[in-house]
Design a protein around this nucleic acid. Structure first.
Lengths: 121, 121
DNA sequence: GCAATAACTTACCAAAAAGTAAGCCCGGCA
DNA sequence: TGCCGGGCTTACTTTTTGGTAAGTTATTGC
């Protein structure tokens, strides 16, 4: 058992998953891995089905864990830009593996997915 | 949006996660990736904190998705052996990445984790 | 002046995931 | 004979997660 910040983890895998667990985080990171300076609604519009509440929540956690960063470039009106950090980028082999594996699985089940389809809508 | 077996997925990553999502699955697979012919209680005893109900559930789903297989080698008394399948093994780069990332994170936070510690208890 | 858009916040509710604890069948062993 | 271990099942409760929808501040565009 590993103890860190008042939480317990069974193993290192568990530690990693605590950052990127949750349905949307990997998708958000994949998106920011490709696009820079994304606004809130640009991200939202690329994740069909996500609610704004969820997006806010996940973005906050990703920011807290320093996988992404938020720049407020205008206060009135309030405008922001999200970017992936180097730490977040270091997870990209993971996104790629998960994606490749999924694509391969789909292919084996007769579904052809266009690999470089970066926008989900 | 991808439709498969009456379910919808946002992207291939989502598809992959549907097999290995859930707190325990990756841990079970990591374990069976190292050890062969494991009995139910051997697996249980290596996942501190898991309930038998959870373990049964996850093992069933992993078996259904053909990532692991179960051999019943004695009916009376009832004795079984779990093994990872080739499909399950093809995910091992993932387990390794998640583990390495976690170990590295821990190191950066002053915790030294023995890399080849395969048993969690 | 009014609607639309950006970037949220808030409150409430439903569904899914997970935990708790007891029980069951069977054979081995003292 | 009684208890222990293996491999579960079952019923019930709690926790976590996620969804819905409305409201907020402020600007731009018609």
């Amino acid at each position: 058992m590993i103890k860190l910040n008042n939480k317990t983890y069974t193993c290192p895998v568990d530690v990693t998953l605590s950052f990127i667990g949750g349905k949307w985080k990997i998708l958000i990171l994949s998106h920011l891995n490709i696009f820079n300076d994304r606004g809130f609604s640009e991200i939202r519009d690329n994740l069909p089905g996500i609610s704004e509440k969820m997006l806010v929540q996940q973005l906050k956690e990703l920011e807290r864990d320093q996988l992404i960063e938020k720049k407020v470039f205008s206060l009135k009106p309030y405008r922001v830009q999200y970017n992936i950090t180097p730490t977040g980028k270091s997870l990209s082999p993971l996104f790629e593996f998960l994606s490749e594996y999924g694509i391969n699985y789909l292919k084996e089940h007769g579904i052809d997915y266009i690999k470089d389809q970066q926008l989900y809508k």
